[in-house]
């Protein structure tokens, strides 16, 4: 495979407070290639949103990235100055947020906001940037783009606003697009429109996409590769087919079993017991062990490493297919 577009290595984020230090992201590594959609899946508190904020250099204070690297085409973003990051954001890396209502400024027209982004990052004059804005709105399937440019966010529906967000995010032709739950706030028929649009745009523009979501249906619909996160770490990573056909980690299996299906017989859902621990009460050893159906004493004491089981399929678990195979090896590498 070619050079990855984005390479995250051993990323660690911590928040210091009077009560101590918590680390919502704890050694996360994955890559995104050009034209590839990588889904980062996890429940609330898994660290998936914090990971994406780290890529943009937007971890809120008092949080900080204290270890690891994020390389965009070889350049380490964690070492960049603020001014450099500002040039990058909205230009080479863009983000679509979950709530299109709150992420657009209500007192400026769509045109104002779109043209601001374009003029900030590209050497275009006013007429050219209006032209560019119209082209982008047209690309995301907004009828009468010239009229929409003069409108305010509240005059548009949720689906339209999300289209505007996508148009804005793509207006400087970014290499990497981070979409944080882009369809969660939308109705199903509108969600289908937006997912379709994202698929088309990816093919057309060859953008690398990080799709952050908790909805496995959305993952099945658009992702190429899947990174499953739990408790601030990657617990499994593989191609989308592998994840759905041969999930290895008990958490991934549990997630898949807990999703009600649209096809096949209706069965009791395979729920995972308990709930996600908060970063301050993370258990020792494997972070999933209190909820894991196959946890052993080993899992309570030793923290498993991410390892490759089959080519391009990584998991963080001592037990593959129920057997304890690697414990001796693991133990020596950890201690």
């Amino acid at each position: 495979m070619s050079e990855p577009l984005l390479e995250i290595e051993d990323l660690r984020v911590r928040f210091r407070s009077d009560e101590g230090v918590v680390s919502p992201v704890n050694g996360v590594s994955f890559q995104v290639h050009e034209g590839e959609t990588v889904a980062v899946v996890g429940e609330s508190g898994s660290g998936k949103s914090m990971t994406s904020l780290s890529i943009l250099g937007l971890v809120p204070a008092p949080g900080e990235v204290y270890d690891g690297s994020i390389r965009l085409q070889g350049e380490d973003l964690t070492k960049m100055k603020r001014s450099q990051m500002r040039k990058l954001r909205g230009n080479e890396i863009s983000m679509i947020f979950q709530e299109p209502m709150t992420s657009l400024n209500p007192v400026f027209t769509i045109g104002n906001q779109m043209i601001e982004v374009i003029r900030l990052h590209q050497k275009l004059d006013k007429t050219e940037s209006i032209q560019q804005a119209v082209t982008m709105l047209d690309l995301v399937g907004i009828p009468e783009p010239e009229r929409v440019l003069k409108q305010f966010p509240h005059q548009l529906s949720g689906g339209m606003r999300q289209r505007v967000m996508i148009a804005m995010a793509l207006s400087c032709n970014p290499k990497l697009l981070i979409a944080d739950e882009p369809t969660t706030a939308l109705d199903v028929t509108i969600q289908a429109q937006i997912l379709n649009l994202m698929k088309e745009l990816k093919d057309e523009l060859n953008t690398g996409v990080i799709l952050i979501t908790h909805d496995l249906g959305v993952v099945a619909e658009v992702a190429d590769r899947v990174v499953v996160m739990y408790g601030g770490e990657v617990v499994e990573e593989a191609t989308v087919d592998e994840i759905f056909n041969h999930p290895v980690h008990p958490y991934t299996k549990g997630l898949l079993a807990s999703v009600p299906k649209m096809t096949g017989p209706v069965e009791e859902l395979g729920a995972i017991k308990g709930s996600v621990p908060t970063p301050s009460e993370m258990p020792t050893g494997c972070k999933f062990h209190p909820r894991c159906p196959i946890a052993t004493d080993l899992c309570k004491q030793v923290h498993p490493q991410l390892e490759e089981t089959t080519p391009q399929h990584f998991k963080r678990c001592f037990h593959t297919e129920g057997g304890v195979k690697h414990d001796e090896h693991e133990r020596s590498t950890i201690s």
């Binding site: 339209m160 028929t189 509108i190 429109q193 249906g217 959305v218 619909e221 087919d241 299906k261 649209m262």
Partner: peptide
């Protein structure tokens, strides 16, 4: 029918080229 087809699929092998409903509510 449109509603049923708009739901994201259960499995990546079920992806289709379904053209979703146009327009808003």
């Amino acid at each position: 029918e449109a509603l049923l087809k708009s739901i994201p699929v259960d499995h990546p092998s079920l992806r289709s080229n379904y053209q979703p409903l146009e327009g808003d509510l």
